[in-house]
Nucleic acid binder design. Structure first.
Lengths: 204, 204
DNA sequence: GTCTATATCGGGATAGAC
DNA sequence: GTCTATCCCGATATAGAC
């Protein structure tokens, strides 16, 4: 494994554990057992490091956003889709712990993040539209647009929310929250099923 | 106005504008036209400053959380209540821009914040229960519990969300989002009314 | 590519005069 | 209470040897 990659991996680990603002380049170098100068040779500071990690995240997430919309999909596909996204986000959770700061400090990151978020929203909307066309979803288009916003907000901040409350954040609770968010918009048989299934997610 | 209060006011201003991590005590002193030493005399660093501001926020918010539950209140009271809370939060928005970091760094703040959040949740739940007892709200208790969580999450992070998206965050959009969150749980006449009224909030 | 050593810089902290 | 003048420290940056 190349040093460059080891640095990225180690930085990700430390950022996730302690929060990006609380990790210095020196700390990363020490943890890896290399010199600060060496780290600087590969990455000129923390910013390129963060950008590098974000690009990885982007590369890993984008493929998940291709919606297989051809055939009829049901609510369960929706949950699976959400689960995959949340899973991936939690691997790079430091990006979302300090979202405001990071995007404020790094305009490049801000642009990239906005692009990603929009891609996620498009996919969410497409999936919802598909459910609606099958009669599984009943609400108006306006309400569904707002629902997409709510889901996105929840995806971005739910782990933070859990952390602030002192619960340790796990992936399951995010999926649970989103399911409960969608449930009121579902037609009655599917609705109850969703609420039941959501409960299962909490226990895991 | 005493120096101590001027410091607090100025710090609040700068924190809100630039984000707490991006403001140094030196900067605050310069802005005020006093010396760093003087500032240090009043507040030994940024932490007591942040705590001081939080305590003010607490004092201002708590009175709003006394729910006047005696008489029948309708959905409109709910919106007003939300509006007041959001308004107050936006005056201390720096607290929420870096919630994770701040609560991570300052355990005292974390405790206080959790207390406040719980108080808000209790009030939200009480109001919803009141609406339900009048038949205005139809959903199950489980769903309502989850709704309270969602509203709280939205209150805490919606401004952040707007900022990340590049829209400048205003108070109206938060109220709008929360209203749309509650709407699906309302009985039909009230529901449509809520969605209509919500639209108005966007234009302001 | 990697190391050691040093330079630079900014924020936080503190002493002592007024 | 307020100022000036330091000091300390950690983080970033960079030069030059291996």
């Amino acid at each position: 494994m190349k040093t460059r990659d080891r640095i990225l991996a180690c930085a990700l680990e430390l950022f996730n554990r302690q929060g990006e603002p609380n990790v210095s380049t020196l700390e990363i170098a020490n943890e890896l057992g290399i010199s600060p100068g060496n780290l600087y040779y590969h990455f000129h500071g923390k910013e390129p490091l963060v950008i590098g990690l974000f690009e990885r995240f982007e590369d890993e997430l984008m493929p998940l956003l291709d919606p297989p919309l051809e055939v009829r999909l049901d609510a369960e596909d929706y949950w699976l889709f959400l689960h995959l996204i949340v899973e991936r986000m939690s691997q790079y959770r430091f990006l979302f712990q300090d979202l405001s700061n990071l995007t404020g400090r790094l305009p490049k990151l801000a642009r990239g993040m906005r692009g990603l978020i929009n891609a996620v929203k498009r996919t969410l909307a497409a999936l919802l539209a598909s459910l609606k066309s099958q009669g599984l979803v009943v609400s108006e288009t306006q309400a569904l647009g707002q629902l997409v916003e709510q889901i996105t907000l929840t995806l971005l901040f739910s782990l933070d929310y859990q952390r602030v409350l002192g619960r340790e954040g796990d992936v399951g609770i995010v999926v649970y929250q989103v399911m409960m968010l969608v449930a009121p918009h579902l037609q009655e048989p599917a609705r109850r099923a969703a609420e039941q299934l959501a409960g299962k997610y909490l226990e895991v």
